[in-house]
Each structure stands twice: as structure tokens, then as C-alpha cells.
Computed example of a mutant assay.
Amino acid sequence: MCQEHTDPQPQPAASIPLPPPNQETLRHILLGDYAILRDTIHTLHRLGYADAGDWSKPMLTGRGGEYVSILTQRRASNSGERPAEA
């Protein structure tokens, strides 16, 4: 006996919340050996700059033992205008 295969109903794509327009975003990217990457994250934590848990989990980049970790900081914008370029 053959069972008929039915495809499940397509599910809508999950929406990704966008930051409000009055919010500024800054991303810090660390690239390097695992040990110094972790040391840098903990140093920045000790200095009060960012909690160590706010960084992404270190991931291999595929380049000879190099790792990457990212910190995203957001804050309310004072204005929507960018400073004039020098």
C-alpha cells in the first residue's frame, strides 16, 4: 500500500522586528584567536563598557583558527540628522 504524501500548509515567514527610526545602532566586531577574543570581551566587561554576555558566541570564520564575536549596542537617537562631513 502506498500512502499519499501531502505537503503541510506553507507557514508565513517570521517577521524580524526592525529598530524604531529614532534608534541608533553600533556593532563591534572582534576577529582573532579564541583566547584573545575572550580576554578582550572580559576586559571590556571589567571596564564597564559591555556585559560579557551581550557578545555573540565566538564562531569560527573558517580562516585558520580565527574566531568572530559581535556586540550590538542600541540607543535612542538625539536627532535623525547625520553630522556634516568634513
Results as ranks from 00 to 15, higher is better:
residue 14 A to R: 07
residue 11 Q to W: 06
residue 20 P to K: 10
residue 28 H to D: 05
residue 85 E to L: 13
residue 60 L to W: 03
residue 51 D to Y: 06
residue 69 S to N: 04
residue 6 T to Q: 15
residue 12 P to D: 04
residue 16 I to C: 10
residue 1 M to I: 11
residue 77 S to Q: 14
residue 68 V to T: 15
residue 58 P to T: 00
residue 53 G to D: 10
residue 47 L to E: 06
residue 79 S to G: 11
residue 59 M to P: 04
residue 41 I to R: 02
residue 80 G to H: 02
residue 28 H to V: 15
residue 74 R to Y: 12
residue 2 C to A: 12
residue 8 P to W: 13
residue 48 G to L: 07
residue 51 D to T: 08
residue 43 T to L: 15
residue 10 P to K: 11
residue 64 G to S: 11
residue 54 D to V: 02
residue 39 D to I: 07
residue 34 Y to A: 03
residue 64 G to R: 13
residue 57 K to N: 06
residue 81 E to G: 01
residue 85 E to M: 08
residue 25 T to Q: 11
residue 69 S to A: 14
residue 24 E to W: 06
residue 7 D to W: 10
residue 20 P to F: 00
residue 56 S to E: 13
residue 21 P to Y: 00
residue 27 R to N: 13
residue 86 A to Y: 15
residue 23 Q to H: 08
residue 41 I to V: 11
residue 25 T to A: 14
residue 15 S to H: 06
residue 52 A to F: 10
residue 61 T to M: 06
residue 15 S to D: 03
residue 36 I to P: 06
residue 23 Q to Y: 09
residue 2 C to M: 15
residue 70 I to T: 14
residue 8 P to S: 12
residue 79 S to A: 11
residue 20 P to G: 08
residue 33 D to G: 05
residue 43 T to N: 13
residue 50 A to W: 01
residue 12 P to S: 03
residue 8 P to T: 09
residue 79 S to F: 07
residue 31 L to K: 14
residue 70 I to R: 13
residue 54 D to W: 10
residue 78 N to W: 09
residue 19 P to D: 05
residue 58 P to S: 01
residue 16 I to Y: 05
residue 52 A to M: 06
residue 17 P to N: 02
residue 69 S to P: 01
residue 85 E to G: 03
residue 60 L to I: 04
residue 13 A to H: 04
residue 81 E to A: 12
